[in-house]
Design a protein around this nucleic acid. Structure first.
Length: 564
RNA sequence: UGGGGCGUCGUCUAGUGGUAGGACACAGGAUUUUGGAUCCUGGUGCGGAGGUUCGACUCCUCCCGCCCCAGCCA
């Protein structure tokens, strides 16, 4: 992963870093950080930020800190800290002993606030939240100065101390930076630095009843940690002048902030608010529901960390707002899984097949290749006998054009087994096909015909007597529209939820080698897709999640045919 | 109608004055005991208009469009 410092930059951030390295701006150091707020679970969008921050540190032989931006006691919890740590580790990144907390800087921040007050750069304001909003002006009109803006340094100092001492109730006073109420950049119109919150902090307990705002915390935290490049998303671009101002007034070390566009993915949502609603209103089973774009959801779905990292590499880094096609994520997943997942045969929707000319009690152990992409994964034995299951989709009474699979009178190959020919179809009283009778050609054992004839279709199958029953959960995209927020006036994203995003199949049959499948194992079910053994699985009740289907050319043809 | 950003194939992204490249997607074809995988082939797409220049995606001007900001959230 380590690349030469003079290697061609892969994005505009690296261009800046290489230039800083060249000019020795930070003494040759590259030090980044990933600064999540522990108020929720990480999602694939965070994976991009993680990948950028840790990736750049890795590539330039620098360091990347993990810092929890925990300045709001109302929202933050230890539970999220733990989950975030797990997710980052799972992705494969390491912050060693550099785990920091903005809340550990509260004392320093307080001292700095006192310094600003003494310098006449900050003041205690008695205005209510509503009044402050009114005084702020609008996008086109300047704000008005607070009547308390001219308080003396001594009074400000006294008041601020008393704020900290708990003399005032929540919301009664705030500490504000004294900048410019007429600034065209609204962030510079005397932003709030401290608010009174008689609230226990998950790490600081009741030590504080005033808490610094993010704007007053973030830049100084980066400064304290000696961060060289503070990489963040675009919406903080117009906060940068404020961060610069604070650092300048304080006269402390000044990191460089660089903003990039956050990740958007088609057919899913990234907003914490929406994700939270999906969980709380029961549209999904939890933060780790396999349909969620959370790291924990993707993990449970069966995504590999490698595939996510590869995805983050490929999408690049830029400043233009964009929506990445989720097909790219799925491509990265398949690419990785194709190389590593052992193949196995599982029938999802079983259709019974009796091989009429196959001896009643006979069982043969046939050789099957574990992974055609990786010979070292070897072979296994698969039992074949007179009664089998094949996929319902693999038989048609009236085969449409280009349908190569089984139909009455047709011959196909059973993977690693024999050529079989359908000679009879059994239906129930409603006319549903419930059983097929076939004959096999003993000459084709293993799947090759000595006379050179071939089959356009090769079907997966399972021996009924040897099959292992399993539950399979078929997951699909959570939303039916590329942009889930594309809704009529007055409606919300819930109208775009995909009603078929989860289908549970309880009567699936797998080959006996699956007996030893453990939670967390990944397989390719031949011709179907990649599957992951779910947390709910047990040795006698296997549960598989479909991570992603295989590319399905036939489905495309059929869809095109239906379209006309 | 304030400020800050951004506009290159369908979607991302490279290119920073010298024939617009890559990935995904899509469409053909080859191959195949997974309709998988693999391998070929297929695209004039730089928001618009002027200007500078021998030459402009790159520089200048104007215009158009999109995103962000009026939390005591981050």
């Amino acid at each position: 992963m380590t690349q030469n410092k003079t290697a061609k930059p892969t994005n505009f951030i690296e261009t800046v870093i290489q230039e800083d390295l060249r000019t020795n701006k930070y003494g040759g150091r590259v030090h980044t950080r990933f600064p999540p707020e522990p108020n929720g679970y990480l999602h694939i969008g965070h994976a991009k930020a993680i990948s950028i921050n840790f990736g750049i540190a890795e590539d330039y032989k620098g360091l990347c800190n993990l810092r929890f931006d925990d300045s709001n006691p109302m929202k933050e919890k230890q539970e999220y800290i733990d989950a975030i740590r797990d997710d980052i580790r799972w992705l494969g990144f390491d912050w060693e002993d550099r785990e920091y907390y903005a809340s550990d800087y509260f004392d320093q921040l307080y001292e700095w606030a006192v310094k600003l007050i003494k310098d006449g750069k900050a003041y205690v304001d008695d205005l209510s939240a509503d009044e402050i909003r009114e005084h702020r002006g609008t996008l086109t009109e300047p704000g008005k100065e607070s009547p308390y803006r001219k308080r003396s340094v001594r009074e400000n100092l006294d008041l601020f101390k008393r704020m900290r001492a708990g003399e005032f109730p929540d919301g009664f006073k705030v500490l504000r930076a004294k900048i410019d109420m007429a600034a065209p950049n609204i962030n510079m119109r005397d932003p709030v630095m401290y608010r009174i919150l008689h609230e226990s902090h998950y790490r600081q307990s009741n030590k504080w009843c005033i808490y610094p705002t993010y704007d007053w915390t973030h830049g100084q935290s980066d400064s304290i940690e000696g961060i060289t490049h503070s990489l963040c998303s675009l919406e903080f671009e117009d906060h940068r002048p404020l961060y610069d101002w604070f650092l300048e007034q304080l006269g402390v070390y000044h990191p460089q902030q660089i903003e990039f566009a956050r990740l958007n993915l088609s057919f899913t949502v990234m907003s914490k608010r929406v994700l939270k609603r999906l969980v709380e209103e029961g549209y999904v089973s939890g933060w780790d529901d396999p349909r969620m774009p959370t790291i924990s959801g993707l993990r449970r779905r069966g995504y590999t960390p490698e595939s996510i990292r590869s995805f983050c590499q490929r999408i690049g880094v830029a400043k233009a707002d964009s929506i990445i096609d989720i097909a790219l994520l799925e491509h990265c997943l398949r690419e990785d899984l194709n190389k590593r997942a052992p193949r196995v045969m599982v029938v999802l929707r079983p259709l019974k097949v009796v091989i009429d000319n196959y001896p009643e009690k006979q069982v043969e152990e046939l050789d099957a290749i574990n992974n055609p992409e990786d010979e070292s994964m070897g072979i296994r034995k698969v039992p074949f006998s007179r009664v089998l299951y094949i996929e319902q989709d693999d038989f048609r009474e009236e085969p449409p054009p280009k349908f190569y699979r089984l139909a009455l009178g047709r011959e196909v190959r059973l993977r690693y087994a024999y050529f079989i020919k359908c000679v009879d179809v059994v239906k129930d009283e409603k006319g549903n096909v419930v059983e097929l009778h076939c004959t096999y050609d003993p000459q084709t054992r293993g799947g090759d015909a000595p006379d050179g004839r071939t089959s356009k279709a090769t079907l997966h199958w399972v021996s009924a007597a040897h099959a292992i029953k399993a539950e399979v959960r078929l997951y699909d995209r959570l939303f039916v529209k590329p942009d889930p927020d594309d809704v009529e006036e007055g409606k919300d994203f819930t109208v775009n939820l995909n009603p078929n995003s989860l289908e549970i199949l309880k009567d699936c049959y797998g080959e006996p080698s699956l007996k030893t499948a453990k939670i967390g194992d990944r397989f390719q079910f031949e011709r179907l897709g990649y599957f992951y053994v779910d947390l709910d699985s047990s040795p006698d009740a296997l549960v598989f999640n479909r991570t992603v289907s295989l590319r399905d050319t036939w489905a495309k043809i059929e869809k095109a045919q239906k379209r006309g």
